[in-house]
Computed example of a mutant assay.
Amino acid sequence: MTKILLLLANGFEAVEASVFTDVLGWNKWEGDGTTEVVTVGLHNQLQCTWNFNVAPEKLLHEITLEDFDALAIPGGFEEAGFYDDGFSEEFQAIVRHFDEQKKPIATICVASLILGHSGILHNRQATTYNHPTSKRLAQLQSYGAIIVNERIVQTEHIITSSNPGTAFDVAFTLLTMLTSEENTLKVKDLMGFK
């Protein structure tokens, strides 16, 4: 079984987390059956950006990183405290661990800033929230990332994306990395994506 650590910062966007649980969950039951998602956070209860409360399955201190094959991180809002957890040393150590092991890391929207803050995007191509009114691309560039202003940027084992609208595509890209293109097409078809 391929285990995916879904790392949830307080203030994450629920829709961005749900694409990972849904796509990889559909794969577990209807695809090749190889993926299992475990939700993990720093707190017993997390409040999403829009006040939806979630209890992660595990706390960080309860897991062994070596048990996981991939890392997925949804984005969130600064106003909801997203970067308090995201930029914490606990989160940063997890990101560096997965990068050192060259295991897949998938992020949606501003979650790539967590990667940038950890130092792993220095001299690597990446993107983040790119609306013209946002300063997030400049923030990511300040971490040494090579900015590519596209919807999704895959560099080696790392996936970054430009906005919440990319969420399903990021989850399907991760599924392809973990299984196969053929399996992903099957899951997409079953989920109604043509």
Rank of each mutant, 00 (worst) to 15 (best):
N10C: 07
L115P: 06
S118G: 07
A93T: 13
V15C: 13
T160R: 02
N10T: 08
E90K: 15
N149L: 02
I159P: 04
G119N: 04
L140D: 05
S88Q: 12
F87W: 05
Q47M: 14
A106E: 01
F172G: 02
T160K: 03
E79H: 13
D99Q: 14
H157M: 06
G41R: 02
H97R: 11
H122R: 15
S134D: 05
S118D: 04
I105L: 09
S112T: 08
R124E: 09
T155H: 14
K188Y: 09
V95R: 01
H117Q: 13
L113R: 00
L190S: 12
L59M: 07
N51D: 15
V170R: 04
H157V: 06
Q101R: 13
V153C: 09
A126N: 08
L42H: 08
T127Y: 04
E79T: 15
V40W: 01
A55P: 00
L174W: 05
I108S: 01
N10A: 07
S118Y: 04
E66R: 14
K135N: 14
F82E: 05
E79F: 12
L185F: 02
E36F: 11
R151C: 04
A171Y: 06
Q141P: 01
F52C: 12
E62Q: 13
G25F: 10
T179W: 04
F87H: 06
K3H: 08
A93D: 15
R124N: 10
G33W: 03
F91S: 02
A167P: 00
A80I: 00
G11L: 05
D67V: 10
V15H: 11
C48L: 00
S18Y: 10
V15L: 15
T133W: 11
F20D: 01
T64D: 13
A72E: 01
A80R: 02
F82K: 05
T184M: 13
V110R: 02
S180T: 15
I73C: 11
N123W: 03
L113V: 04
I152Y: 03
V95A: 06
A80K: 06
L8T: 00
E36L: 15
F77S: 15
K186I: 12
R136G: 00
D69G: 12
T35Y: 05
M1L: 12
Q47Y: 08
A72W: 03
A145N: 07
F168D: 08
I120Q: 03
F87V: 05
